[in-house]
């Protein structure tokens, strides 16, 4: 089992060779909608070449880790910016890319650490995903007869294979299985796909992006803290509970209860969003389609996950302020969706 190596973290955080790349990644809070500069990627590429030339596998691995952190940060920021423009599917796909990057990174660099905003990403990624309305996805089922090692190009065999371990880092690259000789069996519709890009779209499918739009518009920066409590409230319970569906309706219409007053309990989803920083005034003023109230929230104060607890969250436009606590609780916005 591959486990994070403290030496790799030390190189990433302290080695002077990676100063420029490290500074760029540590300044994640100031990047609200821009990608990392080309010099960041070029600098790491050169460092990796140099590390390999001197057979420094640890430094090459650190390069890979920093690249992966950069990918995760960049996709998160760019996806969030797309969501600000109401391009929610792009945000969804970018969240999937962030999830993939964190998945690859985790065995080598603990993503629960606050370094480079990784803990923020790990915590907020599933929170954003939960707000999306996508529930069904296309998913291929296939038989794979051969796998090739992405490092050496040799067939991956059960007994006496090439020795490279899938998911480990060799020469600054991650080892993966290249699928060969595939027989597609089926394409299914599933609710828990391995990759989440293949969302079901169609002329009869209308998605409600209200909750994710609400949170994105309420955040001045993708790096600000927030959390959401989702609950279901039964709005209209059954009219005559306990009545058999086949019995005459108690309203004396002469019809069976099932054909008359029996109805499914109507449920609405209730979202209580706790923003770590006050949302923009227009959201709070109710100019959006959402009704909301500001109140003392029973939700616990969110933990700082960006590794910078003492400092207020990064300034998005210079007008923001940390939400004040009222009786030990922070204000939250509450909204309902049927």
């Amino acid at each position: 089992m591959i486990k994070p190596d403290p030496q790799i973290r030390r190189i990433c955080l302290e080695d002077p060779r990676f100063g420029e790349a490290r500074d760029a990644l540590l300044a994640f809070k100031s990047r609200l909608d821009a990608p990392l500069s080309p010099t960041f990627w070029e600098g790491l590429k050169q460092q990796k070449i140099s590390a390999l030339a001197s057979r420094d596998q640890a430094a090459a691995k650190a390069c890979w880790c920093l690249e992966e952190v950069g990918r995760a940060q960049e996709r998160f920021v760019l996806g969030f910016a797309a969501a600000k423009r109401d391009d929610f599917y792009t945000f969804w796909c970018d969240l999937e890319r962030v999830e993939t990057a964190l998945h690859f990174l985790e065995p080598h660099y603990a993503t629960s650490l606050p370094d480079f905003g990784l803990r923020h990403l790990s915590l907020h990624l599933p929170r954003f995903q939960e707000l999306f309305p996508y529930r069904l996805f296309f998913s291929p089922g296939m038989i794979v007869k051969r796998f090739i090692c992405s490092i050496c190009g040799q067939p991956m065999k059960l007994r006496g294979g090439c020795g490279h371990i899938v998911g480990d880092i060799y020469n600054g690259e991650i080892c993966g299985q290249v699928l060969k000789d595939i027989q597609l069996l089926e394409v299914s519709i599933v609710d828990k796909p391995v990759q989440k890009y293949s969302v079901l779209f169609g002329p009869d499918i209308a998605y409600d992006y209200g909750p994710v739009r609400y949170v994105v518009q309420g955040l001045r920066s993708p790096w600000h803290e927030w959390q959401c409590e989702i609950s279901e409230i039964v709005e209209a319970p059954e009219r005559f509970p306990g009545t058999s569906p086949d019995a005459g309706c108690p309203c004396e219409s002469g019809q069976h209860y099932e054909a008359c007053c029996k109805r499914k309990p109507r449920v609405r989803r209730h979202y209580e969003v706790l923003f770590g920083v006050y949302p923009p005034a227009e959201l709070a003023a109710g100019t959006t389609n959402w009704s909301f109230i500001v109140k003392g929230s029973p939700v616990a104060k969110p933990q700082d996950t960006t590794g910078d607890a003492a400092e207020p969250a990064a300034a998005g436009d210079g007008q923001e302020q940390a939400a004040p606590e009222r009786h030990g609780r922070k204000p939250s916005l509450s909204m309902d969706r049927r």
Partner: peptide, 9 residues
């Protein structure tokens, strides 16, 4: 190199 079934679920 036995064949394997991959379901993207």
């Amino acid at each position: 190199e036995p064949a394997v079934l991959i379901l993207h679920w």
